[in-house]
């Protein structure tokens, strides 16, 4: 099984850590229950250093098949100048299969696949937000070594720090990060905070997750996350307005056909 650390790929799915041992902790995280499908309405508020804000509203669907894949389709519904922009992410668990990202740009009426460090680089900003395309997918552990970085209390919650260090330049080219540090709550194993370091080892972004709760008695999900860009001084709040776990969802939501046509 490909070991991945999901950043956002499933709504509110959070990393879990049940042991001090990092490998055991991460193995448990990667197998934590996720709903087979979900639907959500989300709001993204992008604020620049001057305090000017722009708001994006998003409808999204996910599909998870344990041990096989996580899929996500997002459709921007507002404002009007980005309406009908759609974004598909497929994270395959099989290490032999490359993860897929594609975006539909309505002004061009074209589907574009997102590649590593190409014209539509994964390290580029996701529709002007402080999240990169790579942040929307997952951090593949085959590119990163993980180790414990001690313990720390965040907002009164005891956390275990896990440090992911890039194994080589490919990882940095793909994700834009030489190091990622995550704070995992010791009691319920949810992710509380993540820090991202650029290729020179400089801290550039901090992700803070809040509103974590247990849903349907088995799924840890959060309400809100906020990415602070420590270089530009801006930040992006991404919050769930509504979300609903579903027993199943049609495969057709996660196709290039849906991406292009919206149906």
């Amino acid at each position: 099984m490909k070991k991945t650390i999901m950043l956002i790929a499933t709504f509110g799915a959070c990393l879990a850590a049940g042991a001090q041992d990092v490998e055991a902790l991460l193995d448990k995280n990667e197998n934590m229950p996720r709903p087979p499908a979900s639907q959500a309405e989300m709001r993204m508020v992008i604020t620049n250093k001057a305090g000017q804000s722009r708001t994006r509203e998003i409808s999204a669907w996910t599909q998870t098949k344990d041990g096989e894949f996580n899929k996500q389709m997002m459709t921007f519904t507002a404002p009007a100048d980005v309406r009908d922009t759609r974004f598909l992410t497929v994270d395959w668990k099989d290490p032999a299969k490359a993860d897929e990202q594609a975006i539909y740009i309505p002004a061009l009426r074209k589907v574009r696949t997102i590649g590593a460090a190409g014209g539509d680089s994964k390290t580029g900003a996701f529709l002007g937000s402080d999240f990169s395309f790579a942040d929307i997918g997952s951090l593949d552990r085959k590119y990163y070594d993980a180790k414990s970085a001690g313990k720390e209390t965040l907002d009164g919650v005891a956390c275990v720090k896990v440090e992911f260090t890039a194994k080589g330049n490919d990882a940095i080219a793909n994700y834009g990060y030489s190091k990622v540090v995550k704070w995992l709550a010791a009691d319920n194993a949810t992710s509380r905070q993540t820090e991202f370091y650029d290729k020179n080892g400089k801290l550039i972004k901090r992700l803070v997750v809040s509103g974590t709760e247990l849903v349907d008695g088995k799924y840890w999900q959060f309400k809100k996350m906020q990415m602070f860009n420590l270089v530009s001084g801006g930040n992006t709040v991404w919050e769930f307005i509504t979300s609903k776990n579903l027993p199943s969802i049609a495969d057709s939501y996660f196709t290039l056909r849906y991406l292009e046509r919206g149906r």
């Binding site: 460090a117 190409g118 014209g119 539509d120 680089s121 994964k122 390290t123 580029g124 900003a125 990169s132 395309f133 834009g176 650029d198």
Partner: peptide, 13 residues
């Protein structure tokens, strides 16, 4: 041929 630089903010083609 396109290449993106500076954290994806600049593209030369």
């Amino acid at each position: 041929a396109s290449r993106t630089f500076i954290d994806g903010t600049t593209t030369l083609t």
